[in-house]
Design a protein around this nucleic acid. Structure first.
Lengths: 186, 186
DNA sequence: GTTCGTTATTAACAAATGTGAACGATATTG
DNA sequence: CAATATCGTTCACATTTGTTAATAACGAAC
């Protein structure tokens, strides 16, 4: 179940088998049914989750409207690293769009992992940067492209999401109305 | 010159006077004339700069068009923390919109500061989170609001930028054409 | 102060996107 | 399986935003 995870960790930094065992042994399985939240705004994020199966959505609750900022699938980490790292109250929400199976790591266990081998901070920094870059790219797309171009780019870059994420969430992610997205698709 | 900086550092974490002296003594003065770059994409960011006077702009070069993602003024830090922290090649640019006076800290000196007192990592984490939150808010604005609402919000939240940043950059930041911004202002 | 390049404004028109409402399709529940 | 709610599509029309081009305002350099 954690094979793929191990492979990914090894790709990010050079860790010994012992170090990886130490990390993996701290993971716990968690199941989240479709539609339920992994993190709700106002909470402090105390866990990260590696997605074994399923799909998660980060979103900002904007005057009652859910604006997705990120979609996360199998073999990616689900979580809000800023809140997790700094123990700050989250201003974001994370919920799953399908029944989702996770391998979770608690903040306390990450501390232990980090004390055992400080190099593991690399993982956090790597994902923090990745997330930041993805966000600023998406922001530039919203500022620069029209609705049609945004949707084409979405289809091209995230084809695996087109049929897994409800259209009204894709529309909200792209900053357009569902009706306009329908028109573009036609 | 660094009074305000010291005050800000103290507000973020509890540091002793000795620790703050150690930090501040590593700062160097740097002047950047209007229009020049502090960081260019393709480079690794080796310095952070605390703005004593002037104004900086982070932007993404999008097929030749400059899309601002952030404006930074006096008493704020100028820099791309991801690239600085992880020594990765930057995909962002930073330039100044006015003659700008900085207090800079090199990556090597930050290492020294951090080894002297690991608590200083708090500063990095604090600013990383702040920057991320600002970005996702802006992204949600772009996805959710129309041009007029975006400009009103910009005026309300960043009145100090309205007359310091050229309109065509404000327009690009808000994802609208300069002509449309003129129309809205009228 | 004049000149020149840059930035901001204005207008008419074209194109894109939003709105509201109706209908169909699909999924969920009992 | 039927009933119900949710989601996706379509259309006509309103509104917003982009486009092109001309002009005005501004600022920097001489």
């Amino acid at each position: 179940m954690s094979d793929k995870l191990i492979q990914i960790i090894k790709a990010i930094g050079s860790f010994t088998d012992d170090e990886i065992d130490f990390f993996v042994s701290r993971l716990k399985e968690q199941f989240i049914p479709k539609g339920e939240h992994f993190l709700t705004e106002g909470q402090v994020s105390r866990h990260l989750g590696f997605i074994v199966s399923g799909i998660g959505m980060h979103y900002r609750n904007y005057e009652g409207v859910e604006i997705p900022t990120d979609f996360t699938i199998e073999n990616e980490w689900l979580g809000y690293l800023n809140s997790f790292t700094n123990k700050t109250v989250s201003d974001m929400n994370i919920k799953v769009l399908e029944d989702t199976q996770l391998l979770t790591l608690s903040a306390e266990d990450f501390e232990k992992v980090y004390l055992f081998q400080p190099k593991f901070i690399l993982l956090k920094d790597y994902y923090t940067e990745l997330s930041f870059i993805n966000h600023t790219r998406h922001t530039a797309d919203l500022a620069m492209l029209d609705a049609k171009q945004r949707y084409y780019k979405f289809m091209k870059e995230k084809p695996h999401l087109v049929n897994r994420v409800p259209q009204y969430y894709i529309a909200a992610y792209l900053g357009i109305k569902p009706q306009s997205l329908s028109r573009i698709r036609k």
